[in-house]
């Protein structure tokens, strides 16, 4: 007679993926470093990254050298796009994870950059932390730290976006450098 152990599993999963919490080495500061911006077409995403990049240039000596749009925002970036960033940038800002699929894929992109040796700051709306964290687990880096900003982002005016950038700046610095940002209020 069949038992409950004989009920077949409908997930098709075989084994959990090995974890790999590799992060890229962090520079002590951003002076003279090349910044890349990977925006995902979500409204205000490009503007928020630009506002952040402007502050990193003016206040921290970085240079924004590469700006790219991920048109298939629901999916992790294509290999060619990743290679382009790796070739030209020392640090990458990724965002804004502001939908069900793009928040998860932004985290996947951040983890991919880290594993290739480039520090990344991934910014998601705080309405999508569960799906973003779920993607980190899928990628084998369940504790991967991404930055959040209050939902919603898409409906903000330009001044409010600049304000968000100001709020995010310490967290971005703390994320992509080895020391800056610590002890500052976010």
């Amino acid at each position: 007679m069949a038992t409950l152990a004989d009920v077949l599993d409908p997930t098709g999963r075989s084994s959990a993926r090995a974890t790999d919490a590799t992060l890229a080495p962090r520079p002590p500061d951003l002076s003279g470093l090349r910044i890349g911006l990977l925006e995902n077409t979500k409204h205000n995403a490009a503007l928020l990254l630009e506002e952040l990049a402007g502050r990193l240039e003016r206040e921290h000596g970085a240079v924004a050298v590469l700006r790219r749009t991920k048109t298939a925002f629901a999916l992790p970036m294509p290999d060619e796009l990743r290679e382009e960033f790796l070739a030209e940038c020392d640090v990458v800002l990724v965002g804004v994870g502001d939908c069900g699929s793009c928040s998860a894929s932004a985290v996947a992109d951040g983890i991919a950059f880290e594993r290739c040796g480039v520090p990344a700051a991934v910014i998601c709306s705080d309405a999508f932390t569960v799906t973003a964290s779920s993607m980190a687990a899928v990628q084998g880096a369940p504790d991967y730290a991404f930055l959040t900003t209050a939902h919603p982002v898409a409906v903000l005016g330009p001044e409010a976006v600049a304000e968000r950038a100001e709020q995010l700046l310490p967290g971005v610095l703390a994320t992509v450098t080895d020391q800056a940002g610590h002890g500052r209020s976010a």
Partner: peptide, 14 residues
């Protein structure tokens, strides 16, 4: 839900 792993409040963000 089961095979693709898209579960409400997880990867399903409706």
């Amino acid at each position: 839900r089961n095979a693709l792993g898209v579960v409400p409040h997880g990867f399903e963000q409706a």
